[in-house]
Design a protein around this nucleic acid. Structure first.
Lengths: 250, 250
DNA sequence: TCAAAAACTCTGGTATTACCAATATGTTGG
DNA sequence: CCAACATATTGGTAATACCAGAGTTTTTGA
């Protein structure tokens, strides 16, 4: 152990290593970290470096340093300051279904030709990304953000961006999406294209419907990818909820 | 200058002092901070202490340290990590109009009798708050959050909470809302009651319509309160946008 | 006997100094 | 004029020393 090579600066590596140990449960909240001198020996770095790492943790609110006593665990990494946690992939996607549907409708009334052109390129990139099962989702993200931006409403944009990025803070959600991605490499492009066409036509209702259809499909993908017992329950609940809600939309 | 007494540790004092200088505009975004050695001399501390302070700023995303080059200003304090700025009251309310409308619809399919009872109390409190022109808006906030909570979707709740609280980060937005509040102390209670009734009836479409009507009225209040020249333009744009969008909703 | 006081020791806080590595700059040679 | 090479500057890290707060142990005195 101890060695934690990388290209970053030592204090950053050390801070990460310590955060990993915190996350592992080795040092529960309230307990004391080893003395700086001991950490220095264990990680084979100098004490100033250890101090820098601990200060990094302190600034992030992970530990509290008491002079003459030690550094005590205050909060575990993952428990963000701003909550944003315990958010399941279902909830995230459902929220996006609600919000991005409306955003698309508003965007349809605001898009410029430049917006449309840019989005068209993104759809193309999504198609390419979709070919490669190991590819990223960056074009997908850009697509949704471009539409959010087309609303010309910063608040809307930020809310949607946040929802997307929240997925990364939830390991299960990220994993589930990954599984879903591998399971269904089919209609994604068509769905995005439908949204694009609605925007081109400046048709708010069509845009809303297309976006909701797309995210509905994503939701289905998530449900499909769900095998765990713990999620089976959520699956049923979500389906029932959606059914009722979708009915209300008609 | 240089001296920045306090009871904290030196690096914390120094970090604060540097943040003050950043906030003062002395070091705009993109510029380079003085060398660590120079800062050490200027603030009469050792270089390790300067490094600790700079690392504190770095962890907070205020500066970016480039090896062999220097520490560059990345973001000014006050500009939150998550942007959330340059958001006008119009944008905020428009975003709420979109999102909370859908949230209310979803909530209508999910509310429990307890939720309804709690919301009923809140409507009562809103009426009381509304009597006093100098009263707070806490009941109003609770009302909207209670509905968001009734969706049983944490992501939805957090997004809406964030939109509400964002108002506080924008001084102009807060001021404008305050003015609008004094201008129209009339239909607020009726509007909230309409939402409540729709929830009671478990009618998603009615809930959506009622919530949109309410926030539409808020938007009107904002427009009414707008006198500044700078905002007159935004007013027209927003009105036009809303008109088109509202038409699409029908 | 026991409680107060002193001594000791552990911990973080800060300062010094030194040297390495990445970068930026200026100089030189083609 | 420009590429290549010195050189000064800057951050990165280490090693060491000493101070100050906190806790524990030992000593001391009533």
């Amino acid at each position: 152990m101890a060695n934690v090579k990388s290209n970053d600066r030592l204090y950053q590596d050390l801070a990460r290593a310590l955060m990993d140990e915190l996350a592992s449960g080795r040092y529960p909240v309230g307990t004391r970290l080893p003395a700086e001198r001991d950490l220095a020996v264990r990680f084979e770095v100098s004490r100033p470096t250890v101090r820098e790492a601990i200060i990094a943790l302190e600034v992030q609110g992970l530990v509290e340093v008491r002079i003459g006593s030690g550094a005590y665990v205050k909060r575990l990494p993952g428990e963000e300051d701003r909550p944003g946690f315990n958010v399941t992939a279902f909830e995230l996607t459902e929220a996006r279904l609600l919000f991005e549907g409306e955003a698309a409708a508003l965007a349809a009334t605001q898009v410029t030709d430049e917006d449309v052109a840019a989005i068209e390129v993104l759809v193309q990139r999504i198609a390419e990304e979709n070919q490669d099962p190991n590819g990223t989702e960056s074009a997908d993200r850009e697509f949704h953000l471009a539409i959010a931006r087309a609303t010309r409403n910063v608040a809307v944009y930020q809310a949607i961006e946040r929802l997307w990025d929240l997925r990364a803070t939830s390991p299960e959600a990220a994993l589930l999406h990954e599984k879903a991605r591998h399971a269904q490499i089919k209609p994604v492009v068509e769905e995005h294209t439908a949204v694009l066409e609605a925007l081109k036509a400046r048709d708010p209702n069509a845009a809303r419907a297309a976006m909701r259809a797309h995210l509905s499909a994503v939701l289905d993908g998530l449900l499909f990818a769900t095998e765990e017992r713990a999620l089976a329950e959520a699956r049923k609940a979500t389906q029932a909820k959606r059914a009722r809600y979708a009915g209300a939309m008609a």
